[in-house]
């Protein structure tokens, strides 16, 4: 769907993006991750053609991107603004038409979304009369009104209550099912794990990681296993003895525990199970994949360590 090839961007000798390349396949949600100042917003602005890259190019569906492609892109920036004195309807129609939608089509689309979100009563309200959450919804509608093939969302869940987070999340899934592509820039790693198919991690202007969410987590696993059992904790620890390292434990009640441990030496998962089975009753046992947050922290901290070295 979208290809970025060798994107460079600097502002007055300060490099903001350096040779960033990746593909965004159709019908997927891709998480664009990175700490503050990593260059995510610059990259998003480049995809939206708000600014031009110094070097490199972008293509959409195999064709070099031009301003004509903007009508296929929907954008919800992190810092959201609306014209406060305009009504919801006028605002949405204005932005829809700017995206190339004829007025009648924009009106139809607006009717559809207002009905879908059950907010028809807001139509004639001025933006300044809306609460922050309500305004966020209007902004989301404005971003999708022209039915874009590529949707770029920068922190789309910020400002929403859990009910509306679910609502937006459901809409994003519906978009994915409909074959649309979504780039999601967020610091909320839980959301990334839950709804993203892939992720790209950018740090200090460089792409430092890319791949499917499950692959990324698998690549960064550290041989941590979780065992949930009933029995005696001392018996559990005694059985393991020197071949394993207990990292942490959760106490569910007097006899039920979950223990996180790492294996030492040549031990494998089967060895662990055969060691424990005589000592306690195992309820569940599985290898623990690191969360995206763990991966994120690890990658960023690794970068810092390299710098200090």
């Amino acid at each position: 769907m979208l290809q970025l090839e060798g994107i460079f961007k600097s502002y007055y000798r300060q490099k903001v993006l350096e040779d960033v390349s990746f593909d965004v396949p159709s019908g997927q949600i891709i998480g664009l991750l990175g700490p503050n100042g990593a260059g995510k917003t610059t990259l998003i602005r480049i995809i939206n053609q708000i600014i031009e890259p110094d070097k490199g190019y972008l293509s959409l569906n195999g064709k070099r991107m031009t301003s004509e492609h903007l009508k296929n892109i929907g954008y919800l920036p992190e810092e959201r603004g609306l014209y406060k004195t305009m009504t919801v309807e006028n605002h949405a129609l204005f932005l829809g038409q700017l995206r190339g939608l004829p007025k009648n089509d924009a009106q139809e689309q607006l009717d559809y979304w207002l009905e879908k979100f059950e907010i028809e009563g807001w139509r004639k309200k001025r933006i300044e009369e809306l609460s922050k959450g309500m305004a966020q919804k209007v902004q989301f509608i404005c971003a999708v009104l022209h039915d874009p093939d590529l949707l770029i969302l920068d922190e789309p869940f910020s400002g929403f209550d859990p009910i509306n987070v679910d609502l937006i999340r459901a809409e994003l899934n519906a978009f994915r099912v409909a074959g649309k592509t979504i780039i999601l820039s967020t610091h909320n790693m839980k959301s990334v794990e839950e709804i993203c198919d892939r992720a790209v991690l950018i740090h200090k202007g460089k792409k430092i990681m890319e791949g499917a969410i499950h692959d990324i987590r698998s690549e960064h696993k550290e041989g941590v296993f979780s065992i949930t059992f009933t029995g005696n904790m001392i018996a559990f620890a005694t059985a393991l003895w020197a071949g394993y390292e207990i990292i942490s434990k959760e106490v569910h009640n007097d006899t039920t525990f979950t223990v996180y441990l790492k294996m030492r030496g040549e031990n494998e998962f089967n060895d662990l199970l055969s060691t424990l089975l005589p000592a306690v009753k195992i309820i569940s046992a599985q290898e623990v994949l690191p969360s995206m947050e763990d991966v994120f922290m690890k990658k960023i901290n690794a970068g810092k360590e390299v710098e200090h070295a």
Binding site: N48, L70, G81, Y83, L95, L98, A143
Partner: peptide, 16 residues
């Protein structure tokens, strides 16, 4: 105003 309330970012994604 457009700059301070950031609506300009949405606009610039549609127009030069």
């Amino acid at each position: 105003n457009e700059k301070s309330n950031r609506v300009v970012e949405v606009l610039l994604a549609s127009v030069h």
